[in-house]
């Protein structure tokens, strides 16, 4: 029964020795337009420790990118309604003034995106874009800022960095552009780096280079990272901890190895079973039938229930709470114990 599983509400249970650098409580984001209201994020709570790499894993429309953007309030002001509490390094992001927010962006928390070509300004050279960012945040001269720009390009391992300072985004290859974007994001030494599928558009041999670079920079600079991806392999390469999103909620969370080897939630199980990974050859794939929920009218129930092979009537009676069957693991499913003994 649910009660025996130690039904505990989120954050209070995390045994935190060091205070977390990011704390999110009951985050809700909805997009309102004349035609419809889309409920993108529906009650997300989590914490991130200093120096930790958390991966938000989910399919398109699960709310993973919106969650990430809410951490910097990078959502359209008029259409997005954000509720809840987001604390990043002591700053209450959702109540900051515009000027205070623009200081926090870059200095405390910064973001890298999937498509560097659209994230970079096409009419300024890479060097100019970095110096501009640095001088916007710190009172230093042009020469010092330029020296910092060069240092940053070397940090992200761009070959012949000095020459590349003068390069425009279109003159760089995809991998170099992504490195340049990372350099800009790191230019004011943020404590938290948010990464929104930064390797998805890259070729296989380049993707692994960027993943290794991010891992190395994270260690060297002691940053905390939240990494959004749909790719289980990418999560496996970079994350300390994984959280799985479905229908705008975290449905499972745990250390990377544990989630990959022994998923708890039926959705995570389904996702792992339906993902083609190495060494598979024409075994019948166990798929998740149906399609993701309509985010305009989410029922007050388990949003995965319509596709779940283990669903029973009880699943439709309300949004399931997070259950914690083991330390550090949680899943939003009322039948965890029964399912666990079934398989």
């Amino acid at each position: 029964m649910a009660e025996t599983m130690g039904l505990v509400q989120d954050v209070s249970a995390t045994p935190s020795r060091v205070p977390p650098i990011v704390q999110v409580d009951d985050l809700h984001v909805r997009f309102v337009s004349k035609d419809a209201t889309v409920y993108a994020v529906n009650g997300v709570s989590f914490t991130l420790d200093p120096g930790e790499v958390l991966c938000i894993l989910g399919e398109s429309g699960s709310g993973k990118s919106v969650t990430l953007r809410a951490l910097m309030r990078l959502l359209p002001r008029k259409r997005a309604v954000i509720n809840g509490r987001v604390i990043v390094d002591g700053h209450d992001i959702l109540s900051l003034s515009t000027s205070a927010l623009s200081r926090v962006r870059g200095e405390i928390v910064s973001m890298i995106f999937q498509e560097p070509m659209t994230a970079l300004d096409p009419v300024y050279s890479i060097g100019e874009q970095i110096t501009e960012t640095v001088r916007r945040h710190e009172k230093i001269g042009r020469a010092a800022a330029e020296a910092r720009a060069l240092e940053l390009l070397e940090l992200v391992q761009i070959p012949s960095a000095k020459r590349r300072l003068k390069a425009f985004p279109h003159e760089l290859s995809g991998g170099l552009r992504q490195r340049a974007m990372i350099a800009i994001a790191l230019s004011c030494r943020p404590r938290v780096l948010l990464a929104d599928e930064p390797t998805t558009a890259l070729d296989a041999t380049v993707q692994i280079q960027i993943l290794l670079l991010l891992r190395q920079l994270q260690k060297e600079l002691g940053m905390s990272v939240i990494f959004v991806t749909h790719d289980l392999g990418v999560a496996g390469e970079i994350a300390d901890r994984i959280t799985v999103m479905y229908g705008g909620r975290f449905v499972e969370e745990g250390p990377t190895t544990a989630v990959m080897r022994d998923p708890l939630h039926p959705y995570t199980r389904g996702l792992l079973a339906s993902t083609v990974h190495g060494q598979m050859h024409r075994e019948r794939l166990r798929t998740i039938e149906g399609s993701p929920p309509n985010m305009e009218m989410l029922p007050a129930a388990c949003s995965f229930a319509p596709r779940c092979r283990y669903a029973v009537d009880r699943c439709l009676e309300g949004v399931p709470d997070l259950h914690r069957p083991f330390p550090n693991r949680s899943a939003r499913c009322i039948r965890l114990e029964e399912i666990g003994s079934m398989t």
Binding site: L176, T205, Q209, L211, E237, H277
Partner: peptide, 25 residues
Amino acid sequence: HALLSSRPSMDPEDRKKESPLSGDP
């Protein structure tokens, strides 16, 4: 060889130590 060993691994204990190729195609 390089292309195949660039595949990310789902198992954290099997992480890549260095990338098989440098630079872009």
